[in-house]
């Protein structure tokens, strides 16, 4: 750990402030708690909200995993992992199973999460009603009164225009039967993983200065219609690397003649499956 930084970069009063907001967020599942977002040595859009949450909860014994899309090796993921290795001296890992804290931008890992693990989501836009209502005072009132008549409207408009619900990312959910929440830009494939998860889910939006949470074993329901039920994406082929038929696949262009393959977006999951196959062989 380099000298000249406080543990995990942020000073202790800032971390205490963040922890108070986090505790409030956990106490009121799905409710957006304002916090005094700090300048971080990374630009907005690089997950400054998630980084502040991670900084506030990291302990010296934690093992941190960072994913961007589903991968541990993208520039963004590497930068954030290096940042905490340097400022907190914590162990890092690529393994979902070994991690105690997982910071993420777009995915929830395929490997089922365990009780005691914490997911930290980097959130660009926290307010699920913003597309409909630009005024913050009005969206706050709608949340306070659970005035969610508008909450199905986006789905209605989808079906009216395209014949089906086309919302693929950031699919709106109702948390603990009370608060409407944006799950951050995860694919709707990952929404069922939020429901009654044994792990703690924390969401940080740096630019918008909001923190919210889903405590372990909390109901998270994806909105839908009786005649247009919520469904997750599916593919007509398995992963071209590991053969998984039940994971979220990314399309990879393999050459300049239009060749393409579909492989797991969760690289750790894909690699673990390949390793297990090789050992068995």
């Amino acid at each position: 750990m380099s000298s000249g930084y406080n543990f995990a970069y942020l000073d202790e009063p800032t971390k205490r402030m963040l922890r108070r907001s986090l505790l409030k967020a956990v106490a009121i599942p799905g409710y957006q708690v304002p916090f005094a977002s700090r300048e971080m040595p990374l630009p907005f859009g690089w997950g400054t909200g998630g980084i502040q949450v991670t900084a506030a909860i990291l302990g010296r014994d934690d093992r941190l995993k960072v994913i961007d899309q589903g991968a541990d090796d993208t520039t963004n993921a590497v930068s954030i992992r290096d940042f905490f290795a340097k400022t907190a001296g914590v162990a890092t890992t690529l393994s979902t199973r070994d991690a105690t804290v997982i910071q993420t931008r777009h995915r929830i890992p395929e490997t089922p999460l365990q009780h005691g693990q914490i997911m930290v989501f980097q959130v660009p836009i926290p307010e699920p009603l913003r597309w409909l209502e630009p005024r913050e005072t009005e969206t706050r009132r709608m949340h306070a009164f659970a005035d969610y008549g508008a909450m199905h409207l986006k789905l209605y408009e989808d079906v009216a225009r395209y014949g089906r619900i086309t919302t693929a990312y950031d699919y709106p959910v109702l948390v603990a039967g009370r608060y409407l929440m944006r799950p951050s830009p995860i694919p709707r494939f990952d929404n069922p993983k939020l429901d009654a998860s044994p792990a703690l889910m924390l969401f940080g939006a740096g630019r918008e200065k909001r923190i919210y949470a889903v405590p372990p074993y909390t109901s998270v329901k994806s909105l839908d219609f009786e005649d247009h039920p919520f469904t997750i994406e599916s593919w007509d082929r398995p992963c071209a690397r590991c053969g998984a038929a039940d994971s979220y696949l990314d399309e990879i262009i393999t050459d300049d003649r239009g060749g393409r393959r579909f492989v797991c977006s969760d690289t750790d999951h894909c690699n673990q499956r390949l390793d297990a196959k090789e050992k068995a062989a």
């Binding site: 005035d147 969610y148 008549g149 508008a150 909450m151 199905h152 409207l153 209605y156 408009e157 079906v159 009216a160 839908d224 219609f225 009786e226 005649d227 247009h228």
Partner: peptide
């Protein structure tokens, strides 16, 4: 959508 909104608020869930 304008007509359907308050019906959805009242719990209607069949598109």
């Amino acid at each position: 959508g304008n007509v359907a909104e308050k019906l959805m608020a009242a719990g209607a869930r069949n598109y």
